[in-house]
Design a protein around this nucleic acid. Structure first.
Length: 857
RNA sequence: GCCCGAGUGGCGGAAUGGUAGACGCUGCGGACUUAAAAUCCGUUGCCAGUAAUGGCGUGAGGGUUCAAGUCCCUCCUCGGGCACCA
């Protein structure tokens, strides 16, 4: 019987406490609380069919430890979970099997929820959200309409990745090495009608906002590079024998005297006017071949530059020099003005091009240290100006300023700022996404909408949004909030239209509607036109939103997940604010985190939120690799499922080991043997807790035990705050090993250890806490406080070094003076053998730590 | 090519400029057991030595310092990001 009781029956224990937490609502966050809030957020998962693998919980365990720790410290903690459930896999499964994506999604969510619950997180499940729930996505649509109203959404033909196999347009991030990320199919470029969000309008704000964020430096750097701000000038070149002007953007106006040719991108609007008749055929062939190349080909061939002379010349505004204009695909139409002045002496790309086509290379900057003649070109650094007329002798930076001033005074240039950031293509030609709540009408109905008083009138952007369809210009009208959510219609076939339109384009009774310009109501055109003069014929937008949309604002919905009137109640938003801790993979460093910042800042500018930034503190957990050191993947067959691990060792062992594996941010391999180690540790805790012969009720009497306990409290608390969970666990192991060896120990001691352990291994901690007479839940008991005065012992060990090498040590009372220690060190026989016959040049004493004798000879 | 980050035993990893290798895994030896499992005890960086002990050791080389895994410079390897953005 005794034997049986000592078994660590983790499966029973874990189930028991998960039930307890659920029925007692232990982790329910309070909306009206006097307490300080703590909001821990995980990047919510896409519920795939494959279920959770061992990497998913890593971040969740980390945030859970913080959540439980903060709770024990008296905070009102919010730790929610939800599902980013729109996305391609469910849609592709639907195409294959005809199963509605919502069915697949529900199955997958149920499985993910079961798995996550089995790990025992302190999650407030009453706040669970799902981006595919119409009650959720109506607010995603609502935010879109706000963006539309403010002129931040428009429609344009955009070259996008088209995958003939998936029959879908792919986002850049879904294309890896010229293949689709899903399925690895070839992709090509195609111009398609897209809804676009004007994120570039927020470039400056998104850049500036980074400074105040407590984020990993590398992530901030990535966002900075992605936004890619540069300062320079726009310079206007007149075209010889033409009234047209060619404007270029350059970051190096100082090198203007070194411009020996110009380049326009193949797509440049002035190109046709620049080409002289003799060159027409050659240029036409070149432009056509460039158009056939994808961006990938164009960058792949970066090493081999190509281009054609147009036959035209520009006039350099600074010196009147005539310089030839070329067309070359190393200049991108999408950046700057799509044209450059080429300075081969001081730009690597221009240099390569000039060498290939024998264009003159003129140095205008000397290297500050260089022997001018021997110096290698291109040189892109700073120096002093030469061959630059009146600017000779100036340093690069002042030359920049003065040349811009001269151009400005002549009206042929001005300083300018450019960004690499492009507008965000926000539409997907797919079924399984949020429908975009716009309808399209003809010009006269649009004019009528503008002059019809009613709800629509007030929701129109300042500049109309138009789109060409079958030669006709259509005008976008928004649905009013009262018509949201615009739900996905049922379809029979999930296959995209194949024309580059989504499956929604094939559902004519959903697509074609009567639309009331006054109320924004709509009915299918399969019905008779309703009475009233403001009903017009319209078609719905058939694009759906990208998966990023739902995740742009989910951190807000957790604060108020069931609110039907507002995206979030302002009072709740004021209390909870933004997450105090946000954890997720570094793969989202740019896209998700930039898009979410954009939306959040926009909502802040709209006065809906109190704070401009969504995620003040961000952390990326490192990847967990397979036991073989490779990335876990089905094809390699090294995937470890949490279900299997929990079955064999329990959720507590899983949690503990994921944290013990190494630093949270590090990439580290899984190890089956390793989890046995932490499992043994838990068994040891279990055994020591139940070994009541060793327990006594009075305060801890063993000074060493007491000291070690408080050292452990201190170290574990610090380590949790610093997210150094592996170190925290090591320290608890040290204490557990000590208790195991001790004759006996106080109940206080072991109960304190259980409290420290509770955030890591909550089930076992609860069970043992209860067995030792504590009232559950353990998280409701205040976190132990370290008595630091106990950590200063009466006796200190001082180390003797000779020339920095350890040669002995001795114990002293803690108030010992320098002289005593140094003489003791010199008297030490071992130390003596190393200083004998040598001259002591220096005596170092680090109080309480060591003596170092520097000797010579 | 450019910008980051990281290199510590057989392995995962610890170390406010101050005793390198905590803690865990593995291996080895032992206790308990009829035996095994579980548990416990000891040991485990390398070289020399029976041992005491000594020498060497944090990717390589140099430097700063009484003292360097830690700071500085150069280089190598690995990982991540960007990559014709003028």
């Amino acid at each position: 019987m005794a034997e049986e009781e000592k078994q660590y029956d983790f499966l029973t224990i874990e189930k028991k406490w998960q039930k307890f937490w659920e029925s007692e609502k232990t982790f329910q966050a309070e909306d009206n609380s006097e307490k300080t809030k703590f909001y821990a957020l995980d990047m919510f998962p896409y519920p795939s069919g494959a279920g959770l693998h061992i990497g998913h919980p890593e971040g969740y365990v980390a945030s859970d430890i913080l959540a439980r720790y903060k709770r024990a410290c008296g905070f009102n903690v919010l730790h929610p979970m939800g599902w980013d459930a729109f996305g391609l896999p469910a849609e592709q499964y639907a195409i294959k099997t005809g199963t509605h994506p919502s069915v697949t999604t529900k199955t997958n969510v149920d499985n993910f929820r079961r798995q996550i619950k089995s790990i025992g997180f302190a999650i407030d499940w009453q706040r669970e959200i799902n981006t595919t729930d119409p009650n959720y996505y109506q607010w995603t649509q609502w935010i879109f309409l706000k963006l539309f109203q403010r002129g931040l959404a428009y429609v344009a033909e955009k070259p996008v990745w088209w995958c003939p196999n998936l029959l879908a347009v792919l986002a850049n991030e879904e294309v890896v090495d010229g293949k689709s990320e899903v399925g690895n199919h070839p992709v090509e470029r195609r111009n398609l009608r897209q809804v676009v969000l004007r994120i570039t309008a927020y470039a400056e704000k998104l850049l500036d906002g980074l400074d105040d964020l407590d984020w990993p430096d590398s992530t901030k750097r990535q966002q900075k590079a992605w936004i890619g701000r540069s300062e320079g000038a726009e310079v206007e070149f007149s075209i010889d024998n033409s009234t047209e002007k060619l404007t270029v953007y350059t970051t190096r106006p100082d090198t203007l005297f070194g411009a020996t040719y110009m380049v326009v991108a193949p797509e440049h609007p002035l190109l046709t006017k620049l080409v002289v008749p003799e060159k027409a055929d050659e240029v036409k062939t070149y432009v056509e071949s460039a158009a056939k190349k994808s961006d990938l080909d164009r960058t792949d061939l970066a090493k081999d530059k190509s281009g054609v002379f147009t036959g035209s010349y520009c006039i350099n505004p600074i010196n009147g020099e005539k310089i030839p204009v070329w067309v070359a695909d190393y200049v991108l139409i999408s950046y700057g003005t799509g044209a450059i002045m080429a300075v081969p002496a001081h730009d690597e790309r221009d240099h390569e091009f000039a060498e290939k086509f024998n264009i003159p290379i003129r140095r205008v900057i000397t290297h500050p240290e260089g022997d001018e003649e021997k110096e290698k070109l291109p040189y892109s650094g700073l120096g002093s100006m030469v061959n630059s007329g009146a600017y000779d002798g100036l340093d690069t930076n002042s030359c920049k300023i003065q040349i811009i001033a001269e151009l400005e005074s002549k009206g042929t240039g001005k300083s300018a700022i450019n960004y690499k950031l492009r507008d965000w293509i926000f539409s997907r030609q797919r079924y399984w996404g949020e429908p975009i709540p716009l309808v399209w009408v003809n010009r006269s109905d649009f004019e009528k909408a503008k002059s019809t008083s009613g709800i629509i009138q007030g929701l129109l952007p300042e500049n109309e949004v138009t789109s060409e369809k079958d030669g006709e210009t259509l005008y976008a009208l928004p649905l009013p909030p009262s018509e949201l959510p615009l739900q996905l219609p049922e379809v029979e076939n999930y296959q995209p239209a194949g024309t580059g339109e989504s499956p929604l384009a094939t559902i004519t009774d959903w697509l074609n509607i009567w639309f009331d310009l006054e109320s924004g109501k709509s009915v299918s055109r399969t019905e008779p036109k309703p009475d009233g003069e403001n009903w017009v014929s319209a078609t719905r937008e058939t694009n759906t939103m990208p998966q990023w949309a739902g995740s742009c604002w989910y951190h807000l919905r957790y604060l108020d997940p069931t609110n039907l009137k507002n995206l979030v109640d302002p009072k709740k938003e004021a209390y909870w604010g933004s997450p105090d801790f946000y954890i997720g993979g570094a793969e989202h460093a740019v896209l998700h985190l930039l898009y979410a910042r954009f939306w959040h800042r926009f909502l802040y500018d709209e006065g809906i939120l109190q704070n401009p930034e969504p995620y003040k503190k961000l952390f990326h957990q490192g990847l967990i690799l397979g036991e073989d050191g490779n990335k876990m993947s089905k094809s390699v067959g090294n995937v470890v499922s949490p279900d299997v691990v929990i079955d064999a060792y329990g959720a507590d062992s899983l949690r503990l080991f994921e944290m013990f594996l190494g630093p949270l941010e590090a990439v580290k391999p899984w190890s089956e043997k390793g989890i046995e180690g932490v499992h043994r540790f838990l068994r040891k805790i279990h055994r020591e807790c139940l070994n009541n012969k060793k327990h006594f009720v009075a305060k801890e009497t063993n000074q060493e035990t007491l000291r070690l306990l408080h050292e452990t409290i201190l170290k574990v608390s610090d380590a949790i705050r610093d997210l150094r969970f592996n170190v925290a666990i090591s320290q608890m192991m040290i204490l557990a090993n000590h208790l195991q060896k001790a004759q006996n120990f106080s109940l206080d001691t072991i109960k304190s250890l259980l409290q420290l352990l509770a955030p890591f291994a909550p089930h076992l901690a609860e069970e043992m806490w209860e067995k030792l007479g504590g009232t559950p839940s353990i998280v409701n008991h205040p976190w132990p406080q370290a008595r630091e005065e106990l950590l200063v012992s009466e006796k200190i060990t001082i180390v003797y070094q000779v020339n920095g090498k350890l040669r002995g040590q001795a114990q002293f009372s803690k108030n010992v003076d320098k002289g005593t220690v140094i003489s003791a060190a010199k008297a030490d026989p071992k130390v003596q053998s190393f200083i004998e016959g040598k001259e002591i040049v220096k005596e170092i004493y680090v109080p309480g730590k060591l003596v170092n004798l520097a000797v010579k000879g």
